[in-house]
């Protein structure tokens, strides 16, 4: 290690604005979603024609839509779908992608390359396109969307896991473990996985944001969550016919989407700064 590196700037642990803001925003979305199970200001689905298209007021903080439904209540329930889709999509991608990447990284040679090539074919299908294809073939809906988004994100996890694994496999401590005749699964479990956990968590956080965006886009296209279940993307779509007159209908769900995505992105960036340098720092 060079002398400059040891005396270079080092972030104080604990105080990390990106991480803190990200965590707060994510927590906000999660809390809102949880609260919506127990309580919302109004019934988000029940139409009240008399109250239609009211602007923000003390009673309806974010106003009401064209059927007189409370926008805030819809946003709160919409947070559930957003998180649900994100968790399942990222879960599928991580559960399939990380093992594929680790095996490809540890085995190398023909089987490893074949695994990665397989994952790379998926790169030709960005998540949104895959979701549209699935929607066309199997009918659009929440389940189709999150499975498609999950499959679409597999290569991202596989690539990250593979490059992390390759780095770990090059280290002397893996060589030491092999020299001590530890079996491959033990090396994967004790050395590889703990050391790539950090970058995997970062990837998960970033992909969560992408899944939220993609779900909103699908709902916006009418290929996501079916009505009447509220979803942020469809609220935006519904707002289109009132543009220029009732802009709050677009701004409220739009900001909600942005807040959720920003939260996960910041969280990911913060985690990267905290977790990643240790893995990278050992390269030299």
């Amino acid at each position: 290690m060079s002398e400059a590196a040891t005396v270079g700037p080092r972030r104080r642990p604990g105080v990390h604005p990106q991480l803190v803001i990200g965590a707060v925003l994510v927590a906000l979305v999660v809390v809102v979603a949880l609260v919506s199970f127990a309580w919302t200001p109004f019934d988000p689905i029940h139409a009240v024609p008399a109250d239609r298209l009211q602007g923000p007021s003390a009673q309806h903080w974010f106003g009401t839509d064209r059927f007189g439904r409370d926008v805030l209540s819809q946003l709160m329930v919409g947070a559930r779908i957003t998180l649900y889709v994100g968790v399942v999509a990222v879960g599928i991608a991580a559960v399939v992608g990380i093992p594929v990447g680790v095996v490809a990284g540890m085995r190398g040679g023909v089987p490893g390359a074949a695994l990665m090539r397989g994952a790379d074919v998926l790169l030709a299908f960005p998540g949104l396109l895959l979701a549209i294809v699935f929607g066309a073939a199997f009918g659009a809906g929440t389940t189709t969307a999150m499975v498609a988004l999950g499959i679409g994100a597999i290569p991202a996890f596989a690539r990250v896991a593979r490059s992390g694994t390759l780095q770990v496999m090059r280290t002397d401590y893996v060589l030491a473990a092999r020299a001590a005749n530890r079996p491959a699964w033990a090396i994967a479990w004790r050395h590889v996985l703990p050391n790539i956990a950090g970058i995997a968590v970062v990837q998960a956080s970033v992909n969560f944001g992408l899944a939220v965006l993609a779900e909103a886009a699908l709902s916006f296209l009418g290929l996501g969550t079916a009505p009447p279940t509220p979803s942020w993307g469809r609220m935006l779509q519904d707002s289109q016919q009132f543009l220029g007159t009732y802009d709050y209908l677009a701004i409220a769900p739009g900001v909600a989407i942005a807040v959720a995505v920003l939260g996960f992105n910041l969280l990911g960036d913060g985690l990267r700064d905290v977790l990643d340098p240790r893995l990278l720092g050992r390269r030299r």
Partner: peptide, 30 residues
């Protein structure tokens, strides 16, 4: 058994010294 050149790279940074040193013992043959 082997001792390596790079004293940082040859020890898993996420394991305590006790776990690092005990690792070869986990293998029955050793």
């Amino acid at each position: 058994q082997l001792v390596f050149q790079d004293p940082m790279g040859s020890l898993d940074p996420r394991m305590t010294v006790a776990r690092i040193v005990a690792e070869p013992l986990l293998n029955p043959a050793n």
